[in-house]
């Protein structure tokens, strides 16, 4: 029934600012950008998993998290930190499962890095 593919959609206030963050700071490739309709999409680190953005008058920060897997969380934080990404709080440990680092995009949508400690 399903085919490979997941898209996460966010409402955003400023498309250019959002793309600067996801492309310029996180390093994801912009695969679609249409200013007239206020829409854009970026590839993520995972095949067929993309993030879409749509400009809205009112934006409420999403409470669910989009979590990006990394090989080593400290190294990833250092690299993204050098690009200007600010992390919220310290690295959190879920014993036996993962290490998590939280950051937010320009609209306050929750994002995370995760270093998996044990494969499910």
């Amino acid at each position: 029934m399903y085919r490979s593919g997941v898209t996460v959609w966010y409402s955003v206030a400023n498309l250019e600012q959002t793309l600067e963050f996801y492309s310029g700071k996180l390093g994801f490739e912009v695969i679609f950008h249409d200013s007239s309709s206020g829409m854009a999409m970026v590839n993520t680190n995972t095949k067929d998993c993309v993030i879409g953005f749509s400009v809205a008058e009112a934006v409420e920060p999403a409470t669910s998290s989009t979590v990006f897997e990394v090989l080593n969380i400290e190294d990833a934080m250092k690299q993204l930190g050098a690009n200007g990404v600010s992390f919220v709080g310290e690295v959190e440990h879920v014993p036996g499962m993962a290490k998590l680092a939280t950051f937010v995009d320009p609209d306050g949508h929750n994002l995370m890095l995760a270093e998996t400690l044990a494969e499910l």
Binding site: W9, S11, V12, M39, G52, S54, A56, A58
Partner: peptide, 13 residues
């Protein structure tokens, strides 16, 4: 529609 009433960011405001 408020942000919470919209089921998808591409749907009408």
């Amino acid at each position: 529609l408020s942000p919470s009433e919209r089921r998808h960011p591409l749907l009408p405001e």
